[in-house]
Amino acid sequence: MKLSSHRLMNSPTPTPPTATPPPAGLARYAGIYGAFLRNGLVREMGFKINFLLWIVVELLWFTLQLVFMAVIYRHTERIASWTQWQVVLLVGTNHLIQQLFTALFMNNCVKLSENVRTGMLDFLLLMPVNARFLISLRHVDFGAFVNAASAVAVMVYAAGRLHLTPTLPQLAGFSLLLLVGLSVHYSVMYILACISFWTVRAQGIVWGYYNLFQLARLPDEAFRGTFRAVFTFAVPVLLVTNVPVKLLIDKLSSPLEIVWLVGLSAAVFVLSEVFWRWSVRHYASASS
């Protein structure tokens, strides 16, 4: 960004294309993402205390979720067929997915409405890069990576209490499914963010989404009927964390559950792309 404006000001004649061919495809996007990371780090380090305090806030909420489960298991042996440490593993895994989502996407989705309101979106759409890439990934939240580490610590401890010895393929499958689940959260949130093309306020949407997120850390077996169907197939949040954890603790009722997660994740992503394109087509700029 800085480079191109510099060039515009200093050389009125366009540089011949032969000088330095821009890296193509993936390498180019990796380079841009590197710039996002650097910007993010610089920004965070400008407010160090705030950076640390936000980590404390997230740690507190994570502790609360664990306390909640601890209190429930003071008074019961199991929730449906889930034992205490299986649920702790579930809560930890959910926190990992949530923190990765926060690190990579959350701020960006929230900022979309602001970009619409201020007209910044015009500028982003004109960039010679995929607009959705820019909008989804520009702001990286480094504190969330720290919190992701706390989630991993809890997961490892819970796995120890369960005497789990996952095989390598199990671990690989688990990690892949985490990414698939992450993509579900991203796509759903992106759809909600696109609604702000019309509402221009993101607050309610963010708040609503956090409410949905709370479902993902509960064992799916506790639910049935319409509720389970809606949050499995319409908004697949109940699959996101449950399926990978069930793979790890051999609880999958059938491999079909994995197929559902992967299939629905792809479907929601396609839906979000369609809705995004449709939204942009109806976007009439704010300022100009």
């Binding site: 429930i72 929730i79 449906a80 609503g208 409410n211 709370q214 509960l218 506790a222 639910f223 509720f227």
Partner: peptide, 21 residues
């Protein structure tokens, strides 16, 4: 209204969780 409606989702989930227990 949207807030109130969305807020009912985790509430319902909690109640269903306790019903399962």
């Amino acid at each position: 209204l949207v807030r109130a409606l969305f807020g009912l989702v985790p509430l319902l989930a909690l109640i269903l969780l306790w019903r399962a227990i």
